[in-house]
Amino acid sequence: MANGSDQAGLGIASQDCGIVQFDGWHDARARFEADLAPRLGGHLPKKVGETTYQHSKLVVRIAPRRFWLISDGLLPPIDIDPELGCMLQLGEGRVRLGLSGWKIKHVLERCVVVDWDSLQEGEGVLVGFHHVPVLLLRTGSFQCDLFVPRSFARSLVDWISDVSSGVR
């Protein structure tokens, strides 16, 4: 996708991203996580919404038994023992919207129920963004990434741009 609006105070950049989903079976959860963790390069996040960086890749526990591995580029498939869980490519369905600028806190507080001041850099949170399920990841003091369903992306960019225009 092309870059979004870039107003003074808030820039919006849109890009494709790689997402691979891993799902473990209820009766093999511990073995699934023990098998998955080293293959993703380290520890898995413990709670839903928590994230870990693994060799420039982001791992998010998106549900109790479900993880997303996110990177900027295409991710190769990682085979999972079918007795432990399964893998699914999801990168085509989502767009990574990068927001940056001094307005970011003021814009986000008009969009999502997130306490920006409490959100640590590298921390992700699942939010309802103008009724759309979105993963928000804080990437800096004045930056965050939104992983949004592709079909909603343009509508959300319009929404964010309009919100931003009202922030003085």
Partner: peptide, 15 residues
């Protein structure tokens, strides 16, 4: 059926 080893995922936006 929590005993079933099944994963369902929406891929509506994927394709």
């Amino acid at each position: 059926w929590p005993d079933l080893r099944v994963s369902v995922s929406s891929v509506s936006d994927e394709w």
